[in-house]
Simulated scan of single mutants.
Amino acid sequence: MNLAKLQRIIDAGVDFDLKEILTKAWEMFKSQALFHIGFMVMIGGIQAAFTLYLPDYTILYSIFLAPPIVCGFYLVANRQSQNEYVDFQNYFDGFKYWWNLVTTNLISSIVIVLGILCFILPGIYLLIGYMFCLLFVIFGGFDFWTSMELSRRLVHTNWQKFFVFGLSLLLLNLVGFLALMVGLLVTVPMTYLSVYILFEELTIDAAIDPKERITHE
């Protein structure tokens, strides 16, 4: 991604249609429903295995495995958006960015927790503000601090709208949980797809096209 173009997007401020984002996420989910549900079942199985049989190592899973695994949804969403062929193994492409995802997720989580300890509200602000930090790592190629700051600054331009977006996703998953938890097989993938779609729509003008990438190389 082009930093100068990202800065112009941030300076101009952003807005989006919540209903449109969720509708696009639903259409994206439906087009690869079996893969998305299958991957969600796999994630649930891994988490259950750690909880039941390796409880002492659950924290290690959360730190070192969960970030690249869940980012598989973002990477598959990107392939769907680009009309590229999707194979189940594409969900594991997050491991190509393993170290940067782990460090970014860990540091941003620590900062959010510290924010919550400081009168709660700063933590909520950062929890919403960092929603795109892992996407900036994957699709922008930025380090952890740059990714965190770009995400925070982008969200800050319309924080209340992003808060409503995050709250909508939380309610969506609550409905999925109440549906005998089976609904989570749909709502959790839709959550990640929604975040990706919103990220892509907001940053598309800063993406480096193939010709520009060749020039940079």
Score class of each variant (00 low, 15 high):
L52N: 06
T51L: 13
K19L: 11
D17V: 02
F119Y: 14
G94P: 09
L75T: 01
C133R: 03
R79F: 12
G123A: 11
N100D: 14
I124N: 13
H36E: 12
V102Y: 03
T23S: 12
G45P: 02
W99Q: 13
K96L: 14
I107D: 08
A66K: 05
T104A: 04
M42A: 15
A33N: 11
G44T: 04
D17L: 05
I59V: 15
P67T: 03
I21C: 10
C71M: 07
L106N: 01
I63D: 01
F39S: 11
F50M: 13
W99D: 14
L75M: 07
V111Q: 03
A49P: 04
S109G: 04
F119D: 03
L114M: 15
E20M: 11
I69A: 09
I124A: 13
I37P: 05
S108L: 08
A12C: 03
M131V: 10
V76C: 01
I120F: 15
C71G: 03
I21D: 00
F132L: 00
V86Q: 01
N78L: 10
I59G: 08
L60F: 15
G72T: 00
V137H: 03
K30M: 09
F88C: 07
V86Y: 02
G129Y: 06
N78Y: 04
L134H: 04
M28C: 02
G115D: 04
